[in-house]
Amino acid sequence: MAILIDPPAWPAHGTLWSHLISDAGYDELHAFARRLGLPRRSFDLDHYDVPASLYEAAVAQSARPVTAKDVVHALRGSGLRVRQAERETVAPLRRRQYLRAEWSGLGALVGIGRTRQAENDWHRLGEHLLTRWNEPHRSYHDERHLEDVLLALDHLATRGERLSPATLLAAWFHDAVYTGAAGDDAGSDELASAHLAAGSLAALSIDAALTSQVGEFIVATTPAREVRDPAAPLAHLLDADLSIFASSPHRYQQYSLAVRAEYAHVADPDFAAGRSRILSGYLQQPAIYRTATAQQLWERRARENVSAEFEGLLQVVTAEGAGSGVRRAAEAE
């Protein structure tokens, strides 16, 4: 078994990147990446993208320097290569593997008993949550969002943030109930998710204080809810929940279209007006993110993405206002 890395030669985000692979299996690769301090979101189905700044460290930790061709040949020879045509099929499988592994690890972290019954109960709860996250009416608030939140928390951890079990549990439950309620019912999904967490965790004899904290964290994720000076565990969750704002332009467009799809029943002008008010609230804050680490990682790109969407929505609102004026003038005649 060997970990291989090619020279940093692929330009992106102002630096050059290498490919880090294993010629034997992904478990070995993930373990090496953790030791190197790479966030899990650097994993791209069959390899990790490694910035040039970490190339020498990877080699120092026993990664074998090879050529780019050697990397491709090794992936092919091991059967681990994911071809471009396979990516769309493989991505959701990798996502589900990651989520199940994270849930299993979380069980150990919160002290789930080692009896077969306790392990089975924890497993069933995880599968139940994944079923909820994959309900057919969801477009954005699905298991990809759950994965994004967990990956963002992992990214914060690689930068030295200490994650609380309450934060991780709240991440799993925070949109477990999702109906897309708005208006007078806004916040009902978060309350229902908190209620689900309380009942589910109590049934597994999870510490009552921890369970209560999880519920409080979930309610705090209600959009536009004012949360002043949260302690680090809640700040981590709030920052991770909004990490999508700092995604690539392509991923951000996917996100904004998915949000629109969840409100397909709302007319364009009304959606644009409501959505622009929410985004404006974030832009008016001194910082979108609560922790210094998240601000360093995501603030600039998040403001660029949110500002661009806000400007587009504002054009819809302005056009509708002008159109309404024309219609009123015509009716007056």
Rank of each mutant, 00 (worst) to 15 (best):
V71D: 00
Y26L: 15
A192N: 12
P165S: 08
A52P: 01
G113S: 10
E311S: 14
L237W: 06
F217A: 07
Q295E: 12
T67D: 10
H145Y: 04
V214I: 08
I206E: 06
G113W: 07
Q285H: 10
G160L: 04
V66Q: 12
R34W: 13
S139R: 11
G187L: 10
A194Y: 00
R138W: 02
S248G: 09
A208C: 03
L36S: 12
S212F: 04
V266W: 06
A240Y: 01
D142S: 12
L54H: 09
P249Y: 02
S243P: 04
A152Q: 01
R275A: 03
V306T: 03
A68V: 11
Q61R: 15
L279G: 00
H73G: 00
P65N: 06
G281Y: 07
G180I: 04
D44G: 03
A203N: 14
A246R: 08
E28N: 09
H265K: 06
R94D: 11
A208M: 09
D27V: 14
F271C: 06
G321C: 12
E190T: 07
I5D: 03
G199W: 02
A194N: 03
D175T: 02
Y55K: 09
A232K: 11
Y282M: 12
E147I: 00
E86A: 13
G37V: 11
G126W: 08
R327F: 03
Y178E: 00
P233Y: 07
G113H: 04
R144H: 06
R301L: 11
S62R: 15
